[in-house]
Write a protein that binds this DNA or RNA. Structure first.
Lengths: 149, 149
DNA sequence: GTAAATGCAAAGAATTTGCTAGCCC
DNA sequence: GGGCTAGCAAATTCTTTGCATTTAC
C-alpha cells in the first residue's frame, strides 16, 4: 500500500478550477475588502455564467486554506481580504470604505499582552473608525463614495 | 405655537413601553452579550406573548438611543451589550463566551491616536481572542460551556 | 475513470417591514 | 385622542445546501 503524505486536509484532494483561480485573482488584485456579491459581479465579467454559490464556496475554501480572511463589519455582509497578515483596519463611517492600516502597531505593549483578567490571549483584532481622507476632502459636497467601495 | 425642544430625533417622540422597559432591564442585568434570540427567550418568561419583531425593534431603538451597543463576532448573529462605555472585549475561541475587559487600556498612545494614514480617527474597537480561564480549567475535560453563554 | 467542483435552484437563518389594533403621553 | 408601538406574518437579505452534470487530475 502506498503511503500517502498530505499535510493539510488529508482525506480530501483539492482541485484547481478556473473558477477558483479567477476568484483568487480578483480577491488578491483588489485593495477593497469586497463582499461576496462584489466578487461575484467581477467574476461574471470574465465568466458570465459562474454562480453565486460557487463564489461563496470558493471564498470559504480560500479562507479555510488560509489564503484569505473573512471580516465582518457592522452586520450582515461578510467581507473578504486576501491579505492574511495580521493587520488593522480603518473603517470610514461616512462612505463605508475599509482601509488597511499600514503603520505598524505591533510593538505596542498593550496589544501584545498574552494574558488578561479573562484568560490567555492568542490574537487581537483592532479597528479604527472615523472619516477617511477622501471624505474629508469632499466635506461640504455630497459624498461621492459608494458604500461598497 | 408652543416651542418644542427635542435634542435627539427631533421629529419623533419615543415612548417607554412595558416591552421596551423589560428588554432594557434584561439587557442591563446580564453580563452576557446576548443575541436577540436569547433576549426574546428571557422576555417571554415575563411576557409570554411578546414578539420577536418587537425585541429586534427595541434592541435597535436602544442602540440608536445610545443605551446599548451592538457587537458582531464571527458572522451571522448580532449581540447586544448594555454597557455603552468604551471598553474592550475578550472572546473565548473555545466556548464562544464574550467577556468585558476591565483593565483600562485607554491611556495607550497607539490606541489614542487621532489620525492615521487613512484619515481622522474617532474611536476604535479592540477585541482579544484566546481561551478563557473557565476553559483553561477544564482543559482536558469536555468543555461545559455553551456557545451561547 | 473517478472524485471533486460547478450551476442551478431551493432551503435556511437572521433580521426587517407592512399593517391593523392597542396603549402611552 | 393622536400617533407611536405591539403583535403577527410575510418579505428581504445573505448564505448554505442538494443534486445532476461537468471537469480536473
Amino acid at each position: 500500500m502506498t503511503e500517502k503524505v498530505c499535510l493539510k486536509s488529508p482525506g480530501k484532494q483539492k482541485r484547481m478550477t478556473k473558477q477558483k483561480a479567477l476568484i483568487w485573482q480578483i480577491l488578491s488584485e483588489t485593495k477593497r475588502h469586497p463582499t461576496a456579491e462584489w466578487v461575484y459581479g467581477e467574476a461574471r465579467k470574465d465568466m458570465p455564467n459562474i454562480s453565486l454559490g460557487t463564489v461563496y464556496r470558493n471564498l470559504q475554501l480560500l479562507v479555510s486554506d488560509g489564503m484569505a480572511q473573512e471580516l465582518n463589519y457592522g452586520k450582515g455582509v461578510s467581507r473578504f481580504d486576501a491579505n492574511i497578515e495580521m493587520h488593522d483596519h480603518f473603517v470610514c463611517e461616512r462612505c463605508g470604505r475599509i482601509y488597511d492600516i499600514d503603520e505598524p502597531m505591533r510593538e505596542c505593549s498593550t496589544l501584545n499582552r498574552t494574558h488578561c483578567g479573562c484568560g490567555e490571549i492568542h490574537r487581537y483584532r483592532l479597528e479604527f473608525y472615523g472619516v477617511c481622507h477622501s471624505c474629508l476632502c469632499v466635506q461640504s459636497e455630497e459624498c461621492e463614495n459608494e458604500i461598497d467601495v
